[in-house]
């Protein structure tokens, strides 16, 4: 048995101090110890993207990252998106554009898209594709997801124009 380590990380704005085995993956920490089961596991080797979360604002695969690597970091998961009973504009866009079917890969998509639209609020089609290219969806065939991203861009722009902070 390897020496457990105590780490501190902020998840969706809440600070957690937890003791983990070094080999614990970040996704297992989030889903297990922290009970944040919105982040899903699809392949555990970094290909499908279902487990994508934001690590200091950057979209990464939490199945190929150790929890100890996140010591001192800020982690953001799908649970942070909807606020005050309202879906986030990206989530709302996914619903309106039918950008999901089984919904298992969706939290990963939402995280990747949130990084993209934070960094680049008016992305080109190529940038959108670059982001979606790292996420596998087996249900939708991507067309409605692409439409959802375009709709989300508009919703976020409208919210900014209206002075909102979404």
């Amino acid at each position: 048995m390897a020496t457990p380590r105590t780490i501190t990380l902020s998840v969706n704005g809440t600070t957690h101090q937890v003791t983990v085995e070094p080999r614990t993956t970040l996704v297992d920490l989030l889903r297990g110890d922290l009970g944040l089961t919105g982040t899903h596991v699809g392949c555990e080797h970094g290909v499908c993207g279902a487990c994508t979360i934001l690590w200091n604002g950057k979209a990464v695969r939490s199945c190929i990252m150790l929890a100890v690597q996140a010591d001192g970091s800020e982690v953001t998961t799908v649970e942070s998106m909807a606020q005050d009973g309202e879906l986030h504009p990206i989530q709302q866009a996914f619903m309106e554009a039918h950008g999901l079917q089984c919904g298992f890969c969706t939290p990963g998509f939402l995280m990747s898209i949130s990084e993209l639209l934070t960094r680049s609020p008016d992305p080109t089609d190529e940038e959108i594709k670059d982001t979606l290219g790292g996420q596998i969806c087996r249900c939708t065939g991507y067309q409605s997801i692409f439409t959802a991203v375009r709709l989300a861009i508009k919703k976020l722009a409208d919210a900014r124009a209206a002075g909102g902070s979404a």
Partner: peptide
Amino acid sequence: TMHIAHPQNRNQ
């Protein structure tokens, strides 16, 4: 760099 995998991999 843009030929390497995907942004989610390049971030790490």
